[in-house]
Amino acid sequence: MTTQPKDRDGRATRWEHRRPTLLAAATEYVLDNGVANLTLRPLAAGIGVTIATVVRQFGSKEQLIEEVTRGINREIVENLHDDPELAAGPPVQTLRLLWRRWLTPAEARKFALMFELYGLALRDPEKYRWFTDSVVRDWGLALIEDALIDSGIESGQAEIVGTLTLALLRGLQLDHAATHDTARIDAAFEMAVALLAPTVGPPEPTPTY
């Protein structure tokens, strides 16, 4: 977990009421610029504060990346679980709604960050254990699994089907992030939904986008 640096001179405390604003600005910077080549001095300049302020509030670069990523993850999870539209429909409808939302520019850049962290975690798994321990279940599997269970699928089978479904979605998301070939990838998504439909439930009518 992220720990905050000690406040030896009171300056960190003076920033306490402004910290959510600082974190929001840092999050936007990370989403715009990624983390592979991130350093704190350009980040501080980009959000209009001194590097000393960034260090006092977040500690190291790694601590900042973890706090930003956990915040994004928390926002995604809260938005998904608080959305009555996602909770109301059958699994296939949930998949279609998730797919369209995850391709919007605002959401797509969050998942671009996720894919970047995946790559870093492959090279340094212990350093990014906080990410890999939560990314699959928290960033989609739990919602898909819940929809499957609600449709009558046994929980153990729902976990397996949900894992396969999420793997298909993530692969298509990664393809889209790399190529932006929306027509081809949407067609592949609809084929995947048709193949999954006998397992997850009757398909909804194919929407017109």
Results as ranks from 00 to 15, higher is better:
W130H: 09
G48P: 00
A187E: 12
P198H: 02
P42C: 11
G156W: 05
A158L: 06
G201D: 03
A177I: 15
L95K: 01
G156F: 09
L195N: 04
L141K: 03
V92D: 11
A25Q: 14
I47H: 00
I65S: 06
V135T: 13
G89N: 07
F115W: 06
A142K: 03
P5I: 07
S60H: 04
F58D: 07
E66H: 12
N73V: 07
E67K: 10
G201A: 13
H176N: 14
T21W: 10
L141C: 01
L169M: 14
L22K: 01
D82W: 02
E85N: 00
L86H: 02
A36V: 14
G201L: 01
L31Y: 05
I47V: 08
P90L: 08
D82P: 06
F131V: 10
P198T: 09
W130Y: 09
G152M: 00
R70E: 09
L143F: 09
T94I: 12
T21R: 13
P42S: 15
L168P: 01
R100I: 12
W139D: 07
T179L: 13
S151Q: 03
L164H: 03
R123K: 13
L23P: 03
W99R: 01
I76Q: 05
I185Q: 04
R56I: 03
A187P: 07
E16N: 12
L169D: 02
Q63P: 08
N73C: 14
T53Q: 07
H176P: 04
L172W: 08
E159I: 11
G162T: 11
E67F: 03
H81M: 04
L80Q: 00
V54R: 02
V135M: 05
A44K: 08
L103F: 03
A88T: 06
A142H: 04
E116I: 04
A178I: 10
Y128G: 08
V55M: 13
H17R: 14
Q57E: 15
V136A: 09
T21F: 10
T53A: 13
Y128I: 10
K6F: 09
V30D: 01
L168G: 04
A12Y: 01
A26I: 03
A112E: 15
G46I: 06
E145F: 00
L172A: 10
Y128R: 07
H180N: 07
T132E: 11
P105K: 04
R8E: 15
T179H: 15
T199W: 02
G89C: 04
I76P: 00
R109S: 06
T208D: 05
G156Q: 10
A192P: 10
L64Q: 02
L120E: 12
P105Y: 04
G46E: 04
T206N: 08
R101Y: 11
G71A: 00
G89T: 06
R14M: 12
A108Q: 05
